[in-house]
Design a protein around this nucleic acid. Structure first.
Lengths: 347, 347
DNA sequence: CTGAAAGCGCTAACAC
DNA sequence: GTGTTAGCGCTTTCAG
């Protein structure tokens, strides 16, 4: 910087002004400085700038694991959104472990370095709400915690699930299995804190119940099938078990796409025709759901919008002086995607 | 830090010594300092440390896109490997675009902030070798560029591909299609620079040719099927086109797993039985290949080892004083994974 | 509009 | 073993 100042024949302060687009610099001076900068191939030292400004220009994204398609696509969207705002993204993987999640939130891993954190918890729940009370700006993603001290970008889990099930009802299905849900859990927004398990599963299960009730169909507990892991193996296993148990069903609502893809696999392996014998719909609209055999209907929960909104909320908090705006919760719109697995072909 | 020093009744330097595990600190003093640190919940400011040391403790990973399964899993592995070494990872997506790749390498995006970069180019090729000549330590991933000025972690493309095809030969297949390959390209390590297109495709195609030659089978150009994009849609389309063209084939070697999964989809949709009528093998061993219907044989190219090796090489370069060790190229071992799509069930 | 100087929090000489 | 001090490269009052 000194060198640039010398070459341009100005002071170091003027160089700084030019770099930071400070308005009151004479055009001629600015030109000279810019020329000197490119001549010397000068690049501002971000560490020093960070030291002064207290900003690094980097935010964190804490997710369970990138190998899970949903989170890979979320990370993809977040990185693009952050780039538009000139931010870098450090990705941390928590493996869904409680300790790793706490560590990530406490910022103890990379102390005072990130400007903010987008946090998608899996193990932390409603009772850990205090852990979010940190000096590090945090925006929460997902449905584990509501009413916390931070901004929150969630999705319309219940109504989106309801729409998915209504779609199955709309094509004449009546014995609709739901996989990935705990039969005993049905906790909604009304009573958080009571169970620790306010989560996507229970909210989506609620949508399932509402859709059936709306159609005057009784919920059959045999059709509510749990799966410990929300992945292909779990989805396949849930279907296999249900068939072994002799449960009759003509549709499957999978609580996420990978469960649904697993279900598709199990049905295919068993020679069950989709959608003729059993219709299948998933949740999330991961890329792959378009390319399965048959292509899988699903619900698009607005991942790109979630990402951009989350980044923007975080940036607001980072730049916030004081006057703390109360925590906000935002839920982007969802969209039903009809594909072959329910007898359509939206795309 | 001053506060800590005051509370502990020592000088700031001693605090620094404790934090940095400088050996010659009296245990009692160390205790007092540690107590003061935890009392004040002191965390070292990484920006300041970075300013002093010229290190940020953060490396970059530049990949085309996280939504591509292979790169998501690679990023997963890299982040884990980096964490073991106490490093954070900023993930950058280049979309496979030349400009974005150049920007990433030049470090112009986040100037002088990353300690090093793991770079997986797609558009840059052999002729861009000069772009890698930067002050920023870089470790190259993949097969676009060989003989550059940086360390390089590659894979045994040719011999792994050869093993895959030999596996198909071993189960009696003779009309083996290869999808994702350019029929005109067959450039190996011997003659880089001549074509810009030294890449995974040509190296794997070479393995294909070698396997067939070894079995005394002539290569049939009709069986070499290109695909612009290495994704499911491309794989499906390649198979459809081949069938429309009336090409006879009893096996498919897909140049990556997503192509293979697409091929599986197209074969399934056409009512062709896998592996009875057509056997399929992929390349990469992404998680999903285990869960397709049928599960897909593939080649595991040692992703975890690639990640750890790359991080360690980069770290060596970052810590390197001068005495520049000449560029190294390392290729982890590969492993053939036999699954249902070739009539086995390794796992 | 531009310059001089202080200081962000830390580490590394070097002295004690 | 421990304290003092000088910067790392930048931004930011405050003068001019």
């Amino acid at each position: 910087m000194h060198d640039v100042a010398r070459v341009a024949g100005v002071s170091i302060k003027t160089v700084s002004n030019v770099i930071n687009d400070y308005p009151h610099v004479r055009p001629a001076t600015r030109e000279r400085v810019l020329a000197a900068i490119s001549e010397l191939d000068y690049r501002p030292n971000l560490a020093a700038r960070g030291l002064r400004s207290g900003r690094s220009g980097v935010i964190g994204l804490a997710v369970p694991a990138l190998r899970e398609n949903y989170f890979a696509e979320l990370a993809d969207a977040v990185i693009r959104a952050a780039e538009r705002r000139g931010l870098g993204v450090v990705v941390e993987q928590t493996s869904g472990e409680r300790d790793a999640e706490l560590l990530s939130v406490s910022g103890a891993s990379r102390p005072r370095f990130l400007d903010g954190l987008l946090f998608s918890p899996v193990s932390l729940g409603q009772s850990d709400i205090d852990a979010l009370q940190t000096p590090l700006p945090i925006v929460l993603l997902g449905e584990r915690i509501f009413g916390g001290p931070t901004d929150h970008v969630a999705m319309h889990n219940t109504s989106a699930a309801q729409a998915a099930v209504e779609h199955l009802l709309g094509i004449g299905r009546r014995r609709i299995a739901i996989i990935g849900a705990d039969p005993d859990a049905d906790v909604g927004l009304d009573s958080p804190g009571e169970h620790t398990e306010v989560n996507s599963a229970s909210l989506r299960l609620r949508g399932y119940r509402q859709a059936l009730e709306g159609a005057g169909i009784e919920v059959d507990a045999d059709l509510i099938r749990p799966s410990e892991h929300w992945n292909r193996a779990g989805g396949a296993q849930a279907v296999e078990r249900m068939r072994e148990a002799g449960v009759d069903f003509d549709a499957v609502f999978a609580l996420n796409d990978t469960l649904g893809l697993g279900a598709l696999r199990a049905l295919g392996a068993a020679g069950v025709s989709v959608p003729d014998d059993v219709a299948v719909i998933g949740f999330d609209n991961i890329d792959e759901s378009r390319y399965s055999v048959p292509s899988m209907s699903t619900v698009d929960t607005g991942r790109d919008e979630i990402a951009q909104t989350a980044v923007d909320l975080l940036l607001e908090r980072i730049n916030e002086k004081d006057s703390p705006v109360p925590p906000r919760t935002i839920k982007p719109d969802f969209r039903l995607i009809r594909r072959e697995s329910t007898g359509f072909h939206d795309d």
